[in-house]
Nucleic acid binder design. Structure first.
Lengths: 156, 156
DNA sequence: CTATATGCAAAACGTTTGCATCCCT
DNA sequence: AGGGATGCAAACGTTTTGCATATAG
């Protein structure tokens, strides 16, 4: 799903809920779904700064309100890993992935595992629930020197 | 591990790090590890109120600072599921469990699954990391009427 | 006795909200 | 034209911090 596809889907959601597709909402969505930075899991502040480059008048509130709508539309997922602030990731409806987080530099690697998904269903059932959602985050240290310039694990 | 065992372990950690076991720290730890409420995953505010019943002079800051130390000592784990506030759970070193959260009433059921733990190790390895930590939260709706008085799912 | 811990209140932080104005449809 | 959206700044709840005082070791 590319950025304009995301905007289209968002618009469909908005229309069906008496909301409007404004310039700001379209811009935020485009930037949020930019394929180059898709896996960056931006914070509100990070997204705000990137949006501000293209529209100097946006306010924080609009980012917060738009992300809330994107979540309702099933196009974004909040992720409260680690520290004290929320990160958001673009969500392709129907897909799902979990996270492997680098202990040294915070890099987030996404992955998917069928076997785990299956086990989760099974566990929920055994506990008397039907599974609606789940999140799994692994934290680890890299075994090989990391390629990222800001990673502390440069192969000491 | 009972409450006094937890205090003992905490004291060991404190001593080895030039910290002191104060009345407040011992009290907070005892209450946090109270076997009756072990699985309640209290917020700071909840813990604060329970501690205040036994020592009317404690301040919020002491709860925050003590929980931070308990985390360093490996005796507590912060859990930022769901809403906007952090819950804490007592941790028995060496043990680990994941969470099944009730969609209707927020009840947290703890569970452990060897198979999942094994798969997580495997996935981390495949991605080039050695696993340090992980968290997994399942969200689901109960299949049977819930027994909790405050659960919305009373068997409608 | 001295280093560390406490309680308080103020500050910091991320997030939400009220309101006058603006702008999609 | 009118219901919704925006930007701003103030309000909010949680967590952290500075500081004078108290206390464990």
């Amino acid at each position: 799903m590319d950025a304009s596809e995301a905007v289209k889907r968002f618009n469909e959601y908005l229309k069906s809920h008496q909301h409007k597709l404004t310039k700001q909402r379209a811009l935020i969505t485009e930037i949020f779904f930019d394929p180059d930075k898709r896996s960056e899991h931006p914070t509100v502040e990070e997204l705000y700064l990137r949006v501000k480059e293209r529209d100097r008048n946006v306010g924080h509130a609009t980012i917060y309100r738009t992300l809330k709508l994107l979540i309702e539309a099933g196009l974004a997922v909040p992720n409260r890993i680690g520290e004290g602030l929320t990160r958001y990731e673009p969500e392709i409806p129907g897909e799902h992935h979990d996270h492997m987080i680098c202990d040294r530099c915070g890099l987030i690697v996404e992955f998917e595992d069928e076997e785990i998904e299956r086990l989760q269903e099974e566990i929920a059932k055994k506990l008397g629930f039907s599974l609606l959602d789940h999140s799994m985050n692994l934290v680890g240290s890299p075994q090989e020197p990391c390629q990222r310039p800001d990673c502390l694990n440069q192969g000491s």
